[in-house]
Design a protein around this nucleic acid. Structure first.
Lengths: 246, 246
DNA sequence: CTCCCCTTATTTGTATGACAAGTGGGATAA
DNA sequence: TTATCCCACTTGTCATACAAATAAGGGGAG
C-alpha cells in the first residue's frame, strides 16, 4: 500500500510534530497524500496491516489518522476503511497541509492560486494596518526593519527579521482571523524561499520596497500601503516560482 | 477541571464528528475552549483523570486531544501535561473551529473581524468568477438561483439552494485555496443564520441582490460583480448580528 | 553561598490484546 | 427479479502495561 521504502524516521528539525511517532506518521502520510501518492478515493490498507508495515502500534497509527482527518485529508468509517477524501474538502490553508504541500514540489497551479489569494488578502491587510497601527506597532515594525537591514536577507537572522516585520504588520490589523490566515501562508512560502538563496540570487533587492511599505503605514496612508504590499507579494511570487523551477 | 455537568452525548445531528466518542469529546472540549471555559495557558487535568471523569477510555480521549492539537487549540508535552495554546495559534478558519465558535455565542469582535475578512475575500472572488466563469458555470448558478426563488429563503431547501449558488460562484474562480477558505466561512455563518428566520424577519429581501450578482457575473463585468457581492456580505452581516443579539 | 549536575517523580507516548459497534455485500427467500 | 436478513470485515472503544521525556528538587563541588 504505502510505496515509500521504509523511512520511519521523520526529517531532522521541523520543530513540531516529527518527534513523536504519531506526528511522524501523520507527516509522512500527509505528504504522501498531498503529493498524490495516495489519490482521492484511494482506500488505505486496514489499520492492523498498515500499522504492522510501519512497525508501529495501532494506537499510534490511529492517532496519526485522527490528525489527518481533522485536516480533512482522510475520512474513515467502519467496514469501508479509511479513504482519502476529494481535494475540495482538504483544509488547504492549514499550516501543516501547506507545509506538506511545499515539501513535495507543489504544482505551478497551486502556487499561482496561492499567490492570487495573497494578492487579495495581504494588500488589504496592509491597508488595515495603515489605518489602525499604533505608535507601539510602528516601534516594533521599525525594529524588525532595522534587524533586516543589519543582517541582510541571505542570513537566517535576516529571514527571521523579515518574518517578524510582516508579522508586526499583521498584528496591527487587529483582526485575528486575518492574522491566522496570512501568517500560515507566509510561513509556508517563506519555508521554500530559504532555498532560493543558494541557487541564483534575488530578482531585486526587496529592502527598499519594505522601507516604502513601512513609510506608508507610518504615514497612515492606506492606498500607498496597499500598493507597496502588492509590489512585495509580486516580488515574492517571482522568488518562489524561480526557486521551485530551479 | 471540566465544569460541564455531564453532557457526554453530543447534540443531535451535526453530521460529522459527533457520533463516535472521540469526535464528541473533541467537539465538547473544543467548544469549551473557544468559549473560554478553558483559557489559554490553562492545563487540563491528566489523561487518566480526565478520561475517567468523562467515563471514556484513555485512547478515545487521546484521539480527541490529537484532533484539537491538529487545529492548534492545545499542545501536549510529557510531564507538563496538555495546555490550551494562546489564541493567536488557533486555526480560527478551520471549519470545525468556526462551527464551535458560532455554537457558543461568539463575541461581537470576532463577528466583526470575520465579516471584515469576508468583505476582503468574497468580492474579490466574485470578481474572479466574473472573469473566468464558463457557460457551464452560468447554467449551474442559474439553476441554483431558480431553486432559491422557488422555495423562498425561509425554507430549508431555499437555504440549501442559497448555499449552492454561492458555492457555484466560488467554483467558477478556479482557485482551490480560495474556495476552501470561503466555503468554510460561509458554511459557519450560514449555520447561525438559520436561527434568524424564527425571531424577526430579514432586514431586506436578498433575492434581488442575488439576481444582480448573477447578472454581473453572466455579463462578465468584474466591477459590478464585486459591488453586488459587497452588498450581499453587508446584508449577511446585518442578519448575523441581528440573530446573535436577539 | 552559588551554581551545576544528577536523580526522580510525574505525565504523556507507545505497545498489545480483546471486545463492541457499524455497515456493505452477499445469501436467502418471496 | 426483488426485497430482506444475516454475516464477515473494518473501524471504534476499552483496559493494562511499559517506555520515554522532562520539570523539579536535591545533593555535591567550587
Amino acid at each position: 500500500m504505502v510505496s515509500r521504502g521504509t523511512p520511519r524516521f521523520g526529517r531532522l528539525g521541523e520543530a513540531s510534530g516529527s518527534r513523536r511517532i504519531h506526528g511522524a506518521i501523520a507527516h509522512d502520510l500527509g505528504v504522501a497524500i498531498v503529493s498524490g501518492v495516495h489519490q482521492p478515493g484511494d482506500i488505505l490498507s486496514g489499520e492492523i496491516e498498515f500499522s504492522e508495515q510501519l512497525k508501529v502500534s495501532r494506537s499510534a497509527y490511529r492517532e496519526a489518522v485522527r490528525i489527518l482527518a481533522a485536516k480533512g485529508l482522510v475520512e474513515s468509517r467502519p467496514k469501508t476503511g479509511t479513504r482519502v477524501t476529494e481535494r475540495s474538502r482538504w483544509q488547504l490553508l492549514d499550516p501543516d497541509v501547506l507545509a506538506w504541500s511545499f515539501e513535495s514540489e507543489p504544482s505551478e497551479d497551486f502556487i499561482r492560486d496561492l499567490f492570487e489569494l495573497r494578492l487579495i488578502v495581504e494588500p488589504a491587510a496592509a491597508e488595515l494596518a495603515a489605518r489602525r497601527r499604533t505608535e507601539q506597532d510602528l516601534v516594533h515594525m521599525s525594529a524588525a526593519l532595522e534587524e533586516m537591514a543589519r543582517w541582510g536577507l541571505a542570513d537566517a537572522q535576516g529571514q527571521a527579521a523579515d518574518q517578524l516585520f510582516h508579522n508586526r504588520i499583521l498584528q496591527a490589523t487587529r483582526n485575528a482571523p486575518l492574522i491566522s490566515l496570512s501568517s500560515s501562508i507566509e510561513a509556508a512560502v517563506r519555508w521554500t524561499t530559504i532555498f532560493k538563496q543558494r541557487k541564483g540570487k534575488l530578482p531585486r533587492d526587496p529592502l527598499p520596497d519594505h522601507r516604502l511599505l513601512f513609510t506608508a503605514i507610518a504615514a497612515a496612508d492606506p492606498a500607498a500601503a496597499r500598493g507597496a504590499m502588492t509590489e512585495l507579494v509580486h516580488l515574492a511570487l517571482e522568488d518562489t516560482a524561480m526557486s521551485l523551477r530551479a
